[in-house]
């Protein structure tokens, strides 16, 4: 839970930081677009049944780490912020947390030939 909360706060930071530190418009857009997406995946992953969405933040975090070069940032705060947030989001998204209940094999069961919920029902 705490890992999801931290990533939610990091997403909020991406949304609000451009207003405080005179980001270039590209750097600001990057934060304004990815902040809400990180928040969305983190909040949905609060719940055990949809915890898997934490992993959807991996590609976004990796993009944040390389974005300062790809988009040619010049503002040092924007560079440090995006790389730092990228590393932290990657780190906390990798924390699985407690899964205390069973969900019949979860979402991946839907693609399996002999899923757990089918075996349990027999």
């Amino acid at each position: 839970m705490w890992a999801r909360i931290i990533n939610t706060i990091l997403g909020l930071w991406l949304m609000i930081a451009p207003s405080f530190f005179e980001y270039s418009s590209l750097a600001a857009d990057n934060g304004h677009i990815l902040g809400p997406v990180i928040i969305t995946f983190s909040v949905i992953a609060f719940w055990e049944a949809t915890r898997v969405l934490r992993k959807w933040n991996y590609p976004i975090a990796i993009w944040l780490i390389i974005a300062p070069w790809v988009l040619g940032y010049e503002n040092n705060i924007a560079i440090i912020s995006d790389i730092g947030v990228g590393v932290l989001v990657l780190l906390f998204a990798s924390v699985k947390g407690k899964i205390e209940k069973n969900y019949g094999g979860g979402w991946s069961s839907l693609w399996k030939k002999n899923p757990k919920h089918l075996k349990q029902s027999e």
Binding site: I44, W47, L110
Partner: peptide
């Protein structure tokens, strides 16, 4: 709303 709604969806899909 998404997280808490999806467990029921999963049960129905299963």
């Amino acid at each position: 709303m998404i997280g808490p709604a999806m467990d029921e969806m999963l049960a129905s899909l299963q």
